[in-house]
Design a protein around this nucleic acid. Structure first.
Lengths: 120, 120
DNA sequence: TTAACTGGTTACCAAAAGTATACTGGTTGA
DNA sequence: TCAACCAGTATACTTTTGGTAACCAGTTAA
């Protein structure tokens, strides 16, 4: 019976974790990067080719434009996505997935498969 | 130049997505199941063996008891986790990962690796 | 007796997240 | 000229989330 739980008991009976996950561990941090509402979906929609803002909004019907532009800004700062002004006059902007963003696709695909396999 | 974006243009100029992701697609649904704050961490801490409530609370230092009990309830309803009353009198409860919960671990591990590989 | 433990619940509050609608300022096409 | 487009922003509102702290009813050990 080892000390599986990593909990020690002091002389006064007080208990303490030896390795408390004090602040967000890897999984938590990852979820906060990719787990935000719509972020996965956005990345997924960009995986083939750059997409323009309003086209993205049309494709992700459930999300408002405000949401989308917020998320896209965050994702640009996080390096997941790249914003590119293609032309002004008739202003045109595209959002493109970065190499870093692409590195997350495998994992998103696993999530997708998992969900579909279990019919969720 | 194919119709990559799945957007069609009506005669009056109005545009429409042919396959709008109207409501949460697989990735979105998956994220809502596993992406909740602390849910990944909880699952991860249960992966080796059942853990008692307060021990879990000590290990996941950043989360309050309230959060934990809320999340654990949700996760029980979702079938990710199983609650078991081990004894009353000195009431003892353990939370155990289910088979379904285990099926998500691979994907969490990939997330973990991804995060650590990129030093996030 | 006191203090720590068990597994929670409840009330209260603050902050964050999300929704809905309208609007900008210009362009394009019928 | 009218309507739809572009890429958002502004404003106001509601909902959800999360955190703190106290409390319950019992048990155990110093």
């Amino acid at each position: 019976m080892g000390n599986f739980l990593e909990i020690i008991t002091h002389d006064n009976g007080q208990k303490q974790a030896t390795e408390p996950c004090l602040e967000p561990c890897s999984i938590e941090r990852g979820m906060r990067l990719l787990g935000g509402k719509w972020k996965g979906s956005i990345l997924w929609h960009l995986k083939e080719h750059p997409v323009r803002f309003n086209d993205l909004a049309r494709q992700i019907g459930g999300a408002s434009k405000k949401m989308l532009s917020q998320r896209l800004q965050e994702m640009e700062e996080e390096g997941l996505v790249k914003r590119e002004v293609v032309s002004d006059r008739p202003i045109a902007v595209t959002y493109e997935i970065t190499e870093f963003g692409k590195s997350a696709l495998g994992f998103l695909e696993e999530l997708k498969n998992w969900v579909e396999k279990h019919q969720l």
